[in-house]
Each structure stands twice: as C-alpha cells, then as structure tokens.
Computed example of a mutant assay.
Amino acid sequence: MAARITARRPSPERRRTARMTSSDWANPYGVRKPYGSNGANHGDGGEKGATLSADHPLVPWKQPDHVHQWVDVDHSREELDRFVRNWPDLGELLDANVGHGRVVIVSGPPGMGKTTLIHRCLYEVQQRVAATGPSAGDPLAVFVPTAGLENDGRRISVDPDGSFAPTRLINARIRSEITKKLLLHEFSESRVRAITAEEDPYQAYGEMSDLLVQRNALLFAVIPHIRWNDAHLRAAFLRTCLSHAHTRIVLFVEVSHGAAETAREVAAALSGSAAVTHLALRELNSEDIWRFSRSARAANGAPNGLVEPDRSSLMAAHDEWKPSDVRELRKVFHSAADALRRAPHPWPIDADALRPHWERRRAGRDALLRHPILPRSGG
C-alpha cells in the first residue's frame, strides 16, 4: 500500500482568514445545472445560495458564466484550440455550393469531459455566428442536444422494449429531436412534418438542408455516446452521420471508447474527409489534478472558503489515486470540499483531504463507466 502523504496544516492566521459559515458557502467544485431551481432561469449568476451539482456538463452556450468554470484538463485546451483553428468561416458553412455540412467527432474514454468539450465548442461557434452574422444576414443558429444536456445516450439508443436499437430507429429518434426544435423556431410545420415522415434518411436531411437555406439558418445537433458494442457498428453510424451532414448541418458526435481502442481507430472510417474534425481526449496526469484543484471554482460570486491547495501533495497523490476520468476527479473534489466545510478548521485540499473520498469511490469505480448495452439480434 502506498505511504500516506502528509501536508502542512495552515497557520492560525490562514485559518482565520479562510473561516467560513454555512450561509456564505458554495462548494467551489460544484456545477450549477443550466435548468431547474438552481439554473439559468434565475439569470446568468444563478440564485444566491443555490445548491451546486457534484457533476454536470458545463454548458456555456446556455449559461455564459460556465465559461469561467471550465478547467483545462485531459488535453481539452489543445483540442479546443484545434477546433477553433480548423473551423471554417461562416461563409463556407452557409455556402450552398459546398454541398456538404460538417461532422465533429469528439472521442475519448467515458467520463473524460467529452460532453463539456462539445458545449465549449458550441460556445465558440455561437460567438463567431454572433460576431460575423450581420454580414451574412444574421443567420439563425439552432442548437439541438438530441438526448439532453446530461448526455443520456440510452434515450435514443434503446428501443421501446429496452433492447439495443437498430441504426434505423436511432437515426429516426435523432431526426425527431431535431424537427421538434425546428418547430419551436417556427419553421414551416408542413415542411418539418414531411421531413419527419420521410423514410430515406439521406433524402430527409437533404430536404432539411433546403429548409435551412430558405430560412438562412444553421443547425448544430449534438449526438451523444450511443454505447456502440463494436467498432463496426460505430463506423457504420459515423459514415451515416457524414452522409447526413448536408449544407448548413453540423453534427457533433460523441464516441466513448476503452483504453485498448485508440482515437485514431474510432475515426478511421472517416479519415481523409475535409468535412470531418476529430477531437480526441486522453488520460489524466498529475498536472491535471493540480490544474483542477486551482481552477474549478463556483462562478456565482460565493467566497472560496478553502485554503490554497498544496501542489506537492496533489502532484504526489496522482500516483496513489490514479483518477480514471474527469467525472471522478470532480466528484471526489466536491465530496472532500463538503467534508472540509464541516471541519473545525478549514484545511487545504491535499492528498490527506482527498484520500477518504477516492478510497470510498475506488470500490465502485466500475459503476462510473458506461457498460455496453447488449444488442438484440440484428441490431
């Protein structure tokens, strides 16, 4: 068993300056959900004293202050920068002569922050459309998270009896979610209903593209992790997405995979296509723990009641803890901060503070990973 890591306790002076009360505390590692009693319906800053969730995708395009809670871990900054560099200008996205839309694949192990990265990319897209839109007639940007902001892929990947759905049904459900949002934006109901009823997916998305051109609109649809059981099914679905990405349609597709399957293999079926951008998240390292400890802070103006994290202790903790993903990282830090809130004196976030919480989760770590759904015959 690894030796316990001890850290300096804060001086009495630091304890006094860091003292907190239950009335002014907000967990610095919490995330405010974009909907509900503590969400965006109370304004960008959220309701004072709102309870923050231990884990939730950061959604800056729905709640702008979440940009400031975004933490640069698991190479997400590198991938975001690559997305921004490779993203076409607005004119290319709107040009009907281009003949195709875009597919953005975000791959990596489960829980590694893919959904949050997608929402961060959407925020960048939203800012660009707002900045350059006047010169293009202010196009309408329609954002559709097809399975909700919590990335519940089961919502579209199982059939009514709970079995793994065939690709035909999955595609139909994704298209149904898109057409619901088009109706909310007052697109022609008869045209949208015709798209929903069209049996040929390629033809349906072609008609959708024509409708977007007529309304000077852009569609950004997020397709969550669908729990594909093997690379063949996954590659077939990605090829389908590429064929459906007509002019003015941008699909963000999240692909989870295990450590034995590289990001290159996940996107191999689409390699060489100019319409594809591939963003790959990788494993955490000790520097990621340090970045997270310092950067993850509630963005609702609440005081940070914790003593400054201990860098050397956290860097060393990586070898003992070996957090499997960003979700585990956030939940352990959130749990430790809650415990420190109830301590007689504020202590720093260090290995000693985190250890009981990561050890408690270690036994159930497998539950953090999304297990594949067994496919039904022919699915």
Results as ranks from 00 to 15, higher is better:
M1V: 11
M1D: 09
A2V: 11
A3D: 14
R4S: 06
A7E: 08
R15V: 12
A18T: 12
Y29C: 06
G30E: 06
V31T: 15
Y35F: 12
A40K: 05
A40N: 05
N41R: 12
D44Q: 13
G45F: 02
A50W: 01
T51P: 00
A54Q: 13
H56E: 11
H56C: 09
P57S: 08
K62G: 07
D72M: 02
S76W: 01
R85T: 14
E92G: 00
V98C: 03
G113T: 07
K114M: 08
Y123P: 00
A130N: 13
A131I: 03
T132C: 03
D152F: 07
G153F: 02
G153W: 02
S157R: 04
V158M: 06
G162V: 09
P166G: 10
L169C: 04
I174G: 00
R175M: 09
S176W: 00
T179N: 07
T179W: 03
L184Q: 14
L184E: 15
H185W: 13
E186G: 02
S188Q: 07
S190D: 14
R191T: 07
I195R: 03
I195V: 13
T196M: 09
T196G: 10
E199K: 11
P201H: 06
A204C: 08
L212H: 01
N216Q: 12
L219I: 04
P224Q: 09
W228V: 01
W228R: 07
D230E: 13
R234S: 13
A236D: 15
T240W: 06
C241E: 05
L242M: 11
T247N: 05
V250D: 00
L251M: 12
E254C: 08
S256H: 06
H257A: 12
E261Y: 05
E261C: 09
R264A: 14
L270A: 06
S271L: 03
G272Y: 05
S273R: 09
L279Q: 03
L284A: 05
S286K: 14
D288L: 07
W290Q: 04
F292P: 01
A296Q: 14
G301N: 08
P303Y: 03
E308Q: 13
P309D: 06
P309H: 04
R311E: 15
S313I: 04
L314P: 03
M315H: 10
A317D: 08
H318M: 10
S324Y: 06
V326P: 00
V326R: 15
R330V: 08
S335Q: 11
A337E: 01
A337F: 06
A339I: 03
R341E: 11
R342M: 12
A343Y: 05
P344M: 12
I349C: 04
D352S: 12
R362W: 09
A367M: 11
R370Q: 14
R376F: 00
